[in-house]
Amino acid sequence: MQLTGKVAVVTGAASGMGKAIAVLYAKEGAKVVVSDIHEEAAAAVVEAIKAAGGEALAVKANVAAEVDIQHLIDTTVSTYGTLDILVNNAGIMDNFEPAGDIKDENWEKVFAVNTTSVMRATRKALPIFLEKQYGVIINVASVGGLYGARAGATYTATKHAVVGFTKNTGFMYAKSGIRCNAIAPGGVETNIGASMTGINEFGMGRTQPGLALNPATGQPEQIAALALFLASDASSFINGTVVTADGGWSAY
């Protein structure tokens, strides 16, 4: 098992990629804190992990709230004694809004969940990592953080910001035993589309050519396998970069 003895926090872990990552980490020996805004769904993931012989804890957290981030990491340390791996996976979509149609409240909400939460969780975890000169941070970005025709302007901006934050963090703490990388998934079967409440027709029309290039839809377990690699010692020389997992979408 590749993560024996490690303690991992996974946000947005009640479904989709986060759930797949949490389940695989537990299978590989990690003690996993399953964090999500949906408490009952997170608890169900924990029960499944325990039923398979793993160890896990559910912690309700709205990652857009600083107090919840503080509680999440503090609970992890008080329960398991430390933190080794932080997976910033929680995220929401915009409504494919172009710049001219962005509403301030939507911009602020999507940034709070997709970007500010990544900074706050990383900031909270760093003192733990620095003290023991070890830590792994994995941020779930998106191909939307690499290209302009995959989502609306707000989501695209948030994921570009996550990519930049990842590169800077990886470089800044490279000499402190801390690695920070991002995964840029392409189209993956998750329920993130449920976070959209009214698709902007113009924005969707403009991004449709880019969306239509997608050659395949991935499964959460395929992203989880990459997250396992990046969390393990097998990727010890990979730092401050973005690994794209999109079935060849961006190769076009």
Rank of each mutant, 00 (worst) to 15 (best):
A52Q: 09
G53I: 02
L57P: 04
V59F: 01
K60D: 10
A61H: 07
A64H: 02
E66A: 04
D68G: 00
H71L: 10
L72W: 05
D74M: 06
T76L: 00
V77L: 01
T82D: 15
D84T: 10
D84Q: 12
D84C: 09
I85E: 05
N88V: 02
N89A: 10
G91P: 03
G91D: 11
I92E: 04
I92G: 03
D94Y: 06
D94A: 11
N95L: 00
E97I: 05
D101F: 00
E105Y: 09
E105T: 11
N106K: 09
E108C: 07
E108I: 13
K109R: 14
K109W: 06
V110M: 10
A112L: 03
N114A: 04
V118Y: 01
V118A: 11
M119Y: 14
M119R: 07
R120F: 01
T122F: 02
R123W: 12
L126H: 00
E131N: 14
E131K: 08
Q133V: 05
Y134G: 15
Y134V: 15
G135W: 04
N139K: 03
N139S: 07
N139T: 12
A141W: 06
A141G: 03
S142D: 08
S142K: 04
V143G: 04
G144R: 12
L146W: 08
Y147M: 15
G148T: 12
G148I: 06
R150W: 08
G152F: 13
G152K: 11
V162H: 13
K167S: 00
N168V: 14
G170W: 10
F171D: 13
M172C: 12
Y173F: 15
A174D: 14
